[in-house]
């Protein structure tokens, strides 16, 4: 009766009926908030406020934006301190295409890797072949074609590529709407039209076919980039995001602990305006100041990194 590891592996591979373990962890994070943190103390504040996971960073995106220069993977020591301080999953970012940074993160034992446009890209042509890794990857996408290319490379979780560090939700909203509208259009296409659609959007045919059959992305889709208030979180959830990432919004606000709790409450109860109102009321102090997207030079728009 007992199966060997090899037999189980082949059973899991041949069975299209079981969700793979990488996507499985993303399923466990649904309905929650993933918070950017730069110290072990911040990670504890995030965990206490009800975060489902933390993203271990050296600097939050708004500081990366302000500092300029090359943004790289965080120092392993910092990531390890954060991992030791909380019991929820810990994610970390590597540069687009920098598979050696990803190997280091996997060796540290992080629970998820974000191949992220927030850091300076290491490769302008190729993203990481994420199938090579046992640790799951999350990647950003502005539209459905980009999402399916990343999933084709092995990403187990997608997120929007809202403009990070701006406190401006407009780009994340654009990406959520774009992806959802495109999925709806694909579900009504004739089978004969799918290959051309795949060609036009630069996405793997098999995945386009899967989107038509299931009427959704093959992996969960979370919102990220520019979420700065409880109402922002509720907006993204109502637009179909399944969890929200909050970066600079929390620890750049005046009272991070209260702010974090409020965002968690609004995400959990996103469809109940009276609870979102309660969340808004719990915040003392102002949200982060925010930046209008059209004041950012095209070269500094992080969403344009990757393809």
């Amino acid at each position: 009766m007992k199966k060997t590891k090899q037999e189980l592996k082949s059973a899991a591979k041949t069975s299209s009926t079981v969700i793979n373990l990488k996507v499985g962890l993303a399923e466990m994070l649904k309905g929650g908030v993933i918070m950017d943190v730069v110290t072990a103390d911040q990670a504890k504040i995030a965990e206490d406020a009800g975060a489902v996971a933390v993203m271990a960073l050296e600097r939050v995106p708004s500081d990366i934006r302000a500092a300029g220069g090359v943004a790289r993977m965080s120092p392993p020591r910092l990531i390890e301190q954060i991992m030791a301080s909380v019991s929820i999953p810990v994610m970390a970012k590597c540069r687009i295409g920098h598979f050696a940074e990803a190997q280091v993160l996997e060796a540290i034992g992080v629970d998820y890797i974000d191949e992220s446009e927030v850091l300076t890209p290491a490769d302008e042509d190729y993203h990481i072949n994420k199938h090579d890794f046992k640790v799951p990857f999350v990647c950003g996408a502005k539209n459905l074609g980009e999402a399916l290319r990343r999933i084709g490379e092995g990403a187990a979780l997608m997120r929007t590529k809202g403009e990070p560090g701006t406190g401006n939700i407009v780009e994340a909203v654009r990406h959520l709407r774009d992806i959802n509208q495109h999925i709806k259009r694909i579900t009504v296409l004739d089978d004969a039209e799918l290959m051309t659609e795949a060609k036009n959007m630069g996405a793997p045919y098999e995945l386009v076919k899967l989107v038509k059959e299931q009427g959704r992305l093959p992996v969960p889709n979370f919102a990220a980039g520019g979420i700065a208030t409880p109402a922002d979180a509720a907006l993204c959830m109502q637009l179909g995001a399944e969890t929200v990432f909050v970066g600079s919004g929390i620890f750049k606000s005046e009272n991070p602990a209260a702010f974090a709790k409020a965002i968690v409450k609004a995400t959990c109860h996103y469809s109940d305006p009276s609870m979102v109102l309660e969340a808004c009321r719990e915040i003392e102090g102002e949200a982060m100041r925010g930046i209008s997207i059209d004041t950012i030079d095209a070269g500094m728009r992080m969403a344009n990194r990757g393809w």
């Binding site: 199966k3 189980l8 059973a11 079981v18 373990l21 962890l25 999953p89 996997e106 034992g109």
Partner: peptide, 21 residues
Amino acid sequence: YGRQLDSHHGMIDNYLVSFIR
């Protein structure tokens, strides 16, 4: 069992299941 890297599948009652963290 460890962190996410140690997540694995198992066969319980002839049914394929997932152990995740």
